[in-house]
Write a protein that binds this DNA or RNA. Structure first.
Lengths: 221, 221, 221, 221
DNA sequence: GATGAATGAGTCTTCATTCAT
DNA sequence: AATGAATGAAGACTCATTCAT
């Protein structure tokens, strides 16, 4: 650095600090856009969403989204990836804090509902994308959710069965059912974003379904 | 007759047939439009659907939907009402053929999945409308589904509890869960419209959840 | 026809007449759009042209072009094909009315300039498209002009050489030169659309270039 | 110096070098921009050109063109003036190296085609601008080309006629024809930028057209 | 009732231009 | 002088809806 003339050194210093700020600013702008997008997409669906509204809801003028995302499609896909990953991470973090499979299952629903209540817009976006129309987006989100399926199967169900806490259910089918129950119940929220059902009610239900019993009720056709 | 151009032939035929049949024909036109609408709405969502495509898919030309439905919105609402009612009726019919609550629960899932497989387009439309975006449409469908909630609560769960077949669960919450499990699992279909899960697997799961037990697994947070 | 009830026969007759009119109307609309397009494209170039202006200049409102042409690109291509063919046809018709190669060459420039003066918009469009930017459009027009190259080569130059009226020039290169001279000179018009040069002046020039001589002026580098 | 970030290194260099060289650097930047502009304008036409692409193709970032040219329009006009002048100068230099009018005419086409092959981008820009759309730009280029018309008329044709080498043609019209032949033939290049025609073929053609003859072929309409 | 041309508001996207750093 | 984020006007294209036939 000694070769740099003093003036340039100063400039160099100055140029480093704004750069960090700038990056923060850019990331913040991107985040604002993603949040606004989640809101708009959740309310109107992909086709019904207006990308200009998104840009303006994020505090920019019409064209500015396109400085961050090359198209409406790219914007949803980015949102699916980020919100999906955030959802998975939030739940996985809290589930992994306990080790007992039963506790983990309870935590799964607790954390899941908490995510919905803390991130209502993202959650609503995710649910409507998962079940709403548009196969391509559904598949993208399904990909993003793979770790959550894995979490339920490998970190909750499998050890629970192995430890004799749960009955010997089919792993794949039951994972699907537990996920279905989570995603379905968490999509019912009141106008304040509160999930209608209580996580412990839900957990109770599935724990009953998983418990070992002597006599099996037959459902044969 | 061979000299008549096809369009006029159609008119001629229409003018000859008795009034009751003519009504049938009109209803048939309406039905064709509703089916085409279900397909388009299921694939593209409400906002993404093209009402002209619907008209043409039904065998009419562009403006003709408007002879049957005053607007795109009115068309979806009619479709929600009719498809929703058909869905409820299909399941209720089959459930009511047996009287044992356990058998009824099994029938509920059997009939439900069968409906999805026999009416894939309607079913896909209903699911995407129920979870997809657009609060107004969701509420309309929720209304249409009230009889199905009632069926589960009053004709399956309540008698089952009363007869001591099911444990004393919360009626509303459990109805929600059973419905959630149905709607969630029936939305997972492969490319041929076959539901991924087996109805008996699902029924087994919920019957386990409902069975009376001596020792209760606690999920207390 | 005897099988048709009388009312339908009347309808049949009525339905035939409007149909012909309708077709005329549609073709007229299409032609109006193509003319308006030629004007706009000639003035602004492809990229600079505003397709809404074209629609409105043709007496329609904004979106109506799209009832006739699926895209801006398709519109230019149709225009290139139609105007190019008209240009070729106009010249070929008049050239073929005489049989002497020298007369034909004169007619070629006469008819060519007349076309420019009678169809100034189309002509300007064609010239700007041929030399202007956009390789794809240039190639499309080049294709449309093939018959004009063929005309010059096979119906004017070749017989002229064979009859000993023209010197033994290279057929391809000279065709290019004659076409170049035509296209280049016909692109210089005054504000009233009148070509600056006189067709006989131009014809004289090329006839001198083609005449047989004893002594050849060498241009050897 | 190794610690200086690249941007600053550039500034450092700039600040050390003498004023005259610095001006050269600035001019070099301007030249890079003009070259990039010629490329973009030639490919896309004025309306289709993207001024940000130009800036980036010149090695700058988006806004930087505006430090050199106040607007897109000003940029083309500057380019027209500079490239037009370069074109004229290139040809005039080589033509003036010989004094015989016939040799000069041959040189005119030789040098003209050589310019196209050595400066393909500029040449393509000039041709498309001359014939392409946008009257204002056409006129600007026409102005820039005045010295080339003057060259042909006063330094080639007039002395040739005076020396009895060419027949007594109309000066203005023939100048137009010679220029037309040049501009028209030089616009036909293959994908490597090579002009399709040979300059001597072209020169031969016009020399034949200009040569004195005893018998004149009449083209009288 | 059926048709399909016409309408025009609305949407996605591009890009010349500005300006704070 | 260079940067590149932001702006917002403008343009290609879509489509719900109307209506004369």
């Amino acid at each position: 650095m000694g070769d740099c003339p003093p003036k340039l050194f100063k400039e160099f210093i100055l140029s480093r600090i704004p750069k960090a700020d700038r990056e923060d600013t850019l990331n913040a702008a991107r985040q604002r856009l993603l949040e606004a997008a989640a809101d708009e997409f959740a309310r109107q669906g992909f086709a019904g969403a207006n990308i200009n509204h998104i840009s303006q809801a994020a505090g920019f003028s019409k064209g500015t989204v396109y400085n961050y995302f090359p198209s409406k499609q790219a914007l949803v896909l980015a949102l699916i990836a980020e919100a999906g990953a955030a959802h998975v991470r939030y739940i996985a973090d809290q589930v992994s804090q306990v080790s007992d499979p039963i506790q983990r299952l309870v935590r799964f629903y607790e954390a899941g509902f908490r995510f919905v209540e803390e991130h209502p817009t993202q959650a609503r976006f995710l649910i409507t994308t998962l079940y709403g129309s548009g196969v391509e987006l559904q598949e993208a989100l399904f990909q993003a959710y793979q770790p959550m399926f894995h979490l339920v199967a490998q970190d909750i169900l499998a050890p629970g069965i192995q430890q004799g806490l749960f009955r010997r259910v089919d792993l794949l089918a039951t994972t699907n059912l537990l996920m279905t129950v989570y995603l379905g119940t968490s999509s019912n929220v009141d106008e304040h974003g509160k999930v209608f059902m209580d996580p412990h009610q839900v957990a109770d239900f599935v724990l009953h379904a998983l418990q070992r019993v002597n006599e099996k009720i037959s459902s044969g056709g």
